[in-house]
């Protein structure tokens, strides 16, 4: 709640230095963790592959089994873990900041339910049955839903306020979810596709999909970066933000666009992975404090680490019986609860 500018000027010099040092140390640790998680994600699995073989496979590939596994399965899976983790972590931070609501997740703008509805409609009504087909429908559905939410949330007044944005998002999400359930309950084929799609997984996705979603992710990340300074003033409330010279409407539109692109791309590629976007911002804020210029990059890194670790654990402990979303929540949620109980919370 405390504005960064106010905190920075009011805090004694010593406190400022320690908090900066703390953030730097945390950043280094996170980068190390990310490297370790990526390495583990490539090396470990149903068949463990030693690191030097992995390096060989990447530098001088041959047609042997281990090299093929590394290049065609492990590396893509790791890349998707990284991309989706970063996207969801950052999107979650933005949506919680814009709605000023700790319960907001990246799907709140209707993105996830819009994508789910579009995928199910594509399967049942249009008979689409390739994964590439789903991706485009998911992206379209996500975009359409979030545009609707934003339009409803800002209808009849001076731009979307945090409360109406959150409520409009919830209303549209539930509405679409009702429609999706109706279709799925009537059509068994839709049901079968839907229940696997709705678990969320980064396995068995190939580079073609990465290519499809990459432009959305890149634009989304750029918009998120532009959006961050404005978030700091929005955190003080819309009125104060206006008084400080922030263009609230523009900041909000930018934020919503960034959230939609990031989440839409992640959901389209890997299905809904719910927990990351909801939890990671709280973890990031606990480390960095309320300054969004720090929270946003931290959230991206933490998201990637969390997703990769969960995926590796799912592979190693349960030989892939658990999809990443499930593993994430079953391991991540208890850890999150312990953290919430122990640390002093940074409020939105």
């Amino acid at each position: 709640m405390t504005g960064t500018t106010a905190a920075a000027t009011a805090a004694p010099r010593g406190a400022r230095v320690t908090s900066r040092r703390r953030r730097t140390i945390a950043l280094v640790l996170l980068l190390v963790a990310l490297a370790a998680a990526s390495a583990a994600s490539i090396c470990l699995g149903a068949k463990a592959i030693p690191l030097h073989v992995v390096l060989d496979a990447l530098t001088s590939p041959q047609d042997i089994e281990q090299h093929i596994i590394v290049r065609s399965l492990r590396v893509p899976r790791t890349v998707f873990g990284l991309l989706v983790g970063i996207a969801l972590g950052i999107a979650g931070t933005l949506i919680q900041g814009h709605t000023r609501n700790p319960l907001a997740d990246p799907g709140l703008l209707g993105v996830t339910q819009g994508a789910a509805f579009a995928v199910v409609t594509a399967v049942v009504v249009l008979g689409v049955d390739s994964l590439y087909g789903y991706v485009w429908f998911a992206v379209l559905g996500a975009l359409a839903a979030s545009v609707t939410v934003f339009a409803l949330g800002s209808a009849g007044g001076r731009g979307a306020s945090p409360v109406t944005l959150a409520l409009a998002g919830a209303a549209v999400s539930f509405f679409l979810h009702g429609l999706t359930s109706a279709i799925v309950l009537v059509d068994e084929r839709g049901m079968d596709v839907f229940r696997f799609w709705s678990v969320g997984s980064i396995a068995a996705r190939d580079y073609a999909i990465a290519g499809q979603i990459a432009p959305f992710l890149i634009v989304g990340l750029i918009l998120a970066a532009i959006n961050t300074p404005g978030m700091n003033t929005l955190a003080l409330g819309d009125d104060v933000a206006v008084a400080l010279g922030t263009n609230v409407a523009r900041t909000r539109v930018l934020g919503v666009l960034a959230i939609t692109l990031l989440t839409g791309a992640a959901v389209a590629a890997c299905g809904p992975i719910a927990f990351v976007g909801l939890v990671v911002p709280h973890l990031a804020r606990a480390i960095t404090g309320p300054d969004y210029r720090w929270v946003v990059p931290f959230a991206g890194l933490i998201g990637a680490v969390l997703l990769l670790v969960a995926d590796v654990l799912g592979r190693v402990l349960a030989s892939d019986a658990f999809e990443v979303g499930i593993m994430l929540a079953l391991i991540g949620a208890p850890v999150f609860i312990v953290l919430v109980r122990r640390t002093r919370l940074v409020r939105l």
Binding site: P102, L278, L328, V340, L345
Partner: peptide
């Protein structure tokens, strides 16, 4: 209230994912 909301998120995530695991 704020802590309760966050704890609730954690509990919901566990339950939700148990459900979807059971479904699959």
């Amino acid at each position: 209230g704020y802590r309760m909301v966050l704890i609730g998120i954690g509990i919901a995530a566990i339950g939700y994912n148990l459900v979807y695991w059971l479904l699959s």
